[in-house]
């Protein structure tokens, strides 16, 4: 089984950036990958111990994600997951979730 080197994979994603921008549902679809743990449209089940992400200021969410990535913010799992998304994808996700009530 041959895996793509991460750099090549990221390069491909960057190269198709114009397609992503043209896909009106991309942010919605990407944010839906977070919903398993953080609730549909970021509305986590109250009291279940996982952060709700809806209506949070975009800059705040992006800073939190950056801190998970750098290790500045300790995590059990998010430091591993955040590395699977490009900066552009994280920006789309944070923008979409900020707009959810």
């Amino acid at each position: 089984m041959k895996l793509l080197p991460a750099v090549a994979g990221l390069g491909l994603l960057a190269a198709t950036g114009f397609t992503q921008a043209a896909d009106p549902n991309l942010a919605r679809n990407l944010a839906a990958t977070c919903a398993n743990c953080h609730g549909t449209n970021g509305k986590a089940v109250p009291g279940a111990g996982l952060d709700a992400l809806n209506g949070i200021d975009k800059a705040k969410t992006l800073q939190k994600l950056a801190d998970f990535r750098s290790g500045a913010k300790p995590a059990s799992i998010m430091h591993q997951i955040v590395k699977g998304y490009t900066d552009e994808q994280l920006d789309l996700i944070a923008t979409y979730l900020a707009a959810q009530k």
Binding site: G9, C37, G39, T40, K83
Partner: peptide, 29 residues
């Protein structure tokens, strides 16, 4: 995606609580 993902550093009670929270959230989702 290479370099992303992975496993726990060690078994722990925090993840035991998160696992139950995961279940409640995914069932609601």
């Amino acid at each position: 995606v290479q370099g992303a993902g992975g496993v726990s550093a060690a078994r722990n009670e925090i993840e035991g609580k998160v696992a139950l929270g995961w279940a409640r959230n995914i069932w609601a989702d």
